[in-house]
Each structure stands twice: as structure tokens, then as C-alpha cells.
């Protein structure tokens, strides 16, 4: 009988310590299992004895038969996973939840706003759009991090800075002597470019960020049903049972983690 809690084994093909607390893994399913996910979906990653944590896919399904995860050391499970190296295994259940509704993005201008580790799940979408660039109109990307040392995916960032396929803007809350770019909160990037009202916008970042970003989008005339938010909660089971990730009557793990802002803006518990 199928047991929805028994995970599948995935082998670590690559493990890079990208910042002091974050590690970037590339994984491939073992034993003939497949991981057919869409950008924005999540999985539960675990090590036996340590437990499980929810993570968003950090790569696009359009790329190879492997997938990427970025793990920030915040607790028992993430700490244990981040001690792993190439050739070892992580145990995963997924894909879970609802990702980005690509049909609602295709044929439109797309703006992705990512704060900090929020770049991980959105990287899946960024790669997807870059791989199928002709299906989308204008493509802008805002990325904000605490400091230059906290920036993730440095190779990607330098590629995006020079890519004709994406209009990339970045900022740090606090610069350092080597930093020549923008300093300030992520909303300061709105001054760098013009956002058309037709833009489909995806937001993923720390809880505090959403309110301010949405205010800016409203100023640009972007309607609420064109804004998509990728939310984080304590997703313990990932299958809509355990109750920990509830936002009012919504379960982030199955109704989300990506929601249209329109769908959840009336929920009091969304942004606290």
C-alpha cells in the first residue's frame, strides 16, 4: 500500500557552499524514480533521524534530468543536509503544491522580485523563462540581498547582468567597499525602470517585503490578479494534513506555495 510519507532517494551530483550558511545542491533521483516538477513547486527533503524540511526547486524542469536545491542552515534538518557532499543521498517527497501558473505569464511582460533566499524558488522560473524566452514578452528581474556576501548564484547573477534576455536590477541593504551597485531596500529598484500595468509580477522574499513591493506595483497600475506571491510557512507534511502551514483556511503546501495575490489578499493572516 502506498505510504505518502516514505521518501525517494536522490543522489547529490554537486554540492557547493555558496555563502556562509547556504549550500547549493544538484540532485538526481535514484532507482528509476522521476521528479516531474513545475517551477514554484516544493518538495520535502529529509535525512533519516534528523527529519524533513520543505524546499522549493531552485532549477527549471527544462534543464537536464537533475534538479537544484539551496539549503540555508537554520535548524536541525537543514544543518544536517548542509554537511552532505557529492555522492551522498538526500531523501525527497514531491513534487508538492502548486507552482507558478505559467499559462498566466506567457505572452506578457514578466517581472520577478526576489529577496534573499527568495531567489531560489524563483530561479526555477527565471531559468524556465530564459529557456523559452520567445513565449514571454519583456522580462525584468529585481534581486535584493542583505549584503554582497549574501548574494546567491553568483554565476547566474553575472550572466544576467550581461544578458540581453533579461533586464536585471539588483540592490543590497548594506554595501561594502567593493560594491558599486545600488544600496537600499528592494523597492528602490522601481526607480530604475518602468513597470507596465500589463506586467505579470512574481514576488518571493522575506514576509516583511511583500507589503512594500505590492504598494509599488499598485503605483505602477499592476492589478492584483497579475501579482503572484510565493509564500513560506511551516510546511511539515506537505500534503495538506498536518495543519502547520495554514493561512486562515488555506494550506500553503497544497493550495500554494504560489498564490495569486487576488486569491489571498482578503486573508488576514497572509502578511501578519
Amino acid at each position: 500500500m502506498n505510504n505518502c510519507f516514505v521518501p525517494m532517494e536522490a543522489e547529490i551530483l554537486r554540492a557547493d557552499q555558496v555563502t556562509k550558511s547556504e549550500k547549493h545542491f544538484t540532485l538526481r533521483m535514484k532507482n528509476g524514480c522521476r521528479m516531474d516538477f513545475a517551477p514554484g513547486q516544493i518538495l520535502e527533503a529529509s535525512l533519516f533521524g534528523f527529519g524533513e524540511i520543505p524546499l522549493g526547486f531552485a532549477s527549471s524542469p527544462t534543464r537536464k534530468d537533475s534538479f537544484d536545491l539551496v539549503v540555508r542552515t537554520v535548524g536541525r534538518v537543514s544543518g544536517a543536509i548542509n554537511k552532505l557532499e557529492k555522492g551522498q543521498s538526500v531523501f525527497v517527497r514531491g513534487p508538492l503544491g502548486h507552482g507558478f501558473d505559467l499559462d498566466r505569464l506567457r505572452g506578457h511582460d514578466v517581472l520577478i522580485i526576489a529577496g534573499g533566499i527568495g531567489l531560489c524558488p524563483t530561479r526555477s522560473l527565471i531559468q524556465y523563462i530564459l529557456d523559452r524566452r520567445s513565449e514571454f514578452k519583456g522580462f525584468k528581474l529585481f534581486f535584493g540581498s542583505k549584503s554582497p556576501q549574501d548574494q546567491l548564484f553568483l554565476d547566474d547573477l553575472s550572466a544576467w547582468r550581461n544578458s540581453p534576455d533579461v533586464e536585471y536590477h539588483e540592490t543590497v541593504d548594506k554595501g561594502d567597499p567593493g560594491w558599486t551597485g545600488n544600496v537600499g531596500v528592494i523597492t528602490t529598484l522601481f526607480q530604475k525602470t518602468k513597470i507596465t500595468p500589463d506586467t505579470r509580477t512574481v514576488i518571493c522574499g522575506p514576509p516583511i517585503m511583500y507589503k512594500f513591493v505590492i504598494k509599488e506595483l499598485e503605483k505602477s497600475g499592476v492589478p492584483h490578479n497579475h501579482i503572484f506571491v510565493d509564500l513560506e510557512r511551516r510546511m511539515k507534511c506537505g500534503i495538506g494534513k498536518c495543519g502547520h502551514c495554514q493561512i486562515n483556511d488555506k494550506y500553503v503546501c497544497i493550495d500554494g506555495p504560489v498564490f495569486s495575490f487576488d486569491q489571498i489578499k482578503h486573508l488576514e493572516e497572509v502578511f501578519g
Binding site: G49, F50, G75, R76, G79, A80
Partner: peptide, 11 residues
């Protein structure tokens, strides 16, 4: 003790 042996913060 089991947690500590594995370097895991006790729950």
C-alpha cells in the same frame, strides 16, 4: 544523548 551523538539539537 542520541541527538547529541548525531550533532542534532535535542527536540
Amino acid at each position: 544523548v542520541s541527538h547529541l551523538l548525531h550533532g542534532k539539537t535535542p527536540v
